[in-house]
Design a protein around this nucleic acid. Structure first.
Lengths: 184, 184
DNA sequence: GTCTATAGCCTGATAGAC
DNA sequence: GTCTATCAGGCTATAGAC
């Protein structure tokens, strides 16, 4: 299955390059080059550029699912949430340079009125739902609202770290979120 | 001064259209049409598309300066900050449809390595500096950190409201920020 | 199945008429 | 100063050779 391998290579390259350069500034040739595949050949695996963007969104969703599955191994929901915050802090350099992969993609795709804008929102919702489940397990009131506060803080600190090119924003806000989770 | 008038018309149109459609998906023709100016004529007023983007950033900065100047008329710094939050809530429909003008522009421009990425950060910093000044006037410790928390919450709730197409996110987080400011 | 060459379109920018 | 016509370049996508 050489074909399936190349397809996966292209999906991974698309996820990375689209995050770094943005959707509109990235050409098919950019993704092909990053994957080591001839430019025109990309169309054998993905009919359109939008299909590649969709595949990249799927990659990010899969990555998120893997992360939350890992966190689910922890016994205490509060510890799971704190470990999530810790993983955000661990990605501070990436956040400062390119922003949150899902968040920046959502911002860009939301400027469109084709179907892709809604799909970005679905990936964001995966994280919101998982976080809400943890707050619910802790018996806290308004778990959905708390999830929005937590994920909103993540998106906000990623955006600011990116706009200011300053990873320390993530450190500071990460500490604050840790205390916030402890005090809930 | 017919020329200066048209120039201002183009700047206002650029600020609006670039916010709604994003930088990369907006053509010179789009902005020209929104301003009621013939397409090619735009280049008489702005040498390049990047110049127009810069002008749009300037418009957003001016709008922000006007807002903070208005808030400065309030006697109490805490009331100024709460009025800022209230103005964000008042813009919830726009935030849900197009996101924060400065924030979404910063996300898109940060994907570039020319000079424009840094200029978006400068506009964000205007708001941060003003907020920090209010916290400082209240005698609170770490005013810069508090400003990042406040503006980060704004950017986060705007992004989520936009990605989920749900203005109620802004209402909920606005209420929370109001309580947070009261309890500081 | 894999890749190349190229068509066709759109965009930013310009030259020059008025 | 204002506007039109048009060019050059780069992009997505396809047709068809291997």
């Amino acid at each position: 299955m050489r074909g399936e391998q190349k397809r996966r290579l292209l999906m991974a390259a698309a996820a990375r390059v689209l995050h770094e350069q943005g959707v509109e500034r990235t050409t098919i040739a950019d993704i092909a080059e990053a994957a080591g595949v001839p430019t025109g050949n990309v169309y054998y695996y993905f009919k359109t550029k939008d299909d590649l963007v969709r595949a990249a969104l799927g990659e990010h969703a899969a990555h998120l699912a893997a992360l939350t599955a890992e966190l689910d191994a922890l016994p205490d929901p509060r510890e799971r949430l704190k470990a999530l915050v810790a993983s955000w802090v661990g990605q501070r350099e990436v956040a400062a340079r390119y922003g949150c992969p899902t968040g920046t993609l959502a911002v860009e795709l939301d400027k469109r009125d084709d179907g892709l804008d809604a799909e970005a929102g679905r990936v964001v919702r995966l994280l919101l739902d998982w976080a809400a489940a943890q707050f619910r397990a802790l018996g806290l009131p308004d778990p959905d609202g708390l999830a929005i506060t937590l994920v909103g803080a993540y998106q906000g600190m990623s955006l600011l770290a990116n706009a200011l090119r300053d990873p320390s924003v993530v450190d500071r806000e990460g500490d604050r979120l840790h205390r916030w989770l402890d005090d809930l």
